[in-house]
Amino acid sequence: VVDQIRLWQIENERMKATPGFLFKEFENQKEYEGCAKYADEIGVLVWKSDAKRMFFVTRHEQLRDHIKSRKAK
């Protein structure tokens, strides 16, 4: 029983929480890839899924501006 408790405690500590923003519903694969690449380059990307076309970033302001400027072109 003691071992079991210890295992749960370890698992609990293993939980990692990162505040930020989930980006989803990209129009197409190209837009998704471009944004994910940019997010990675500026160092805000923490998680992504190519299959789901979603990614998670710690900050979104710079990425928003980047998306807007791409759209304006």
């Binding site: 698992e11 293993r14 939980m15 990692k16 929480a17 990162t18 505040p19 930020g20 923003f21 989930l22 980006f23 989803k24 519903e25 990209f26 129009e27 837009e31 998704y32 944004c35 923490v46 998680w47 998670f56 979104h60 928003r64 998306i67 759209k71």
Partner: peptide, 14 residues
């Protein structure tokens, strides 16, 4: 435009 949703990314054991 993609959507940006505020939240906390939680990574843990299954």
């Amino acid at each position: 435009m993609p959507r940006a949703i505020r939240g906390v990314l939680v990574e843990c054991d299954p």
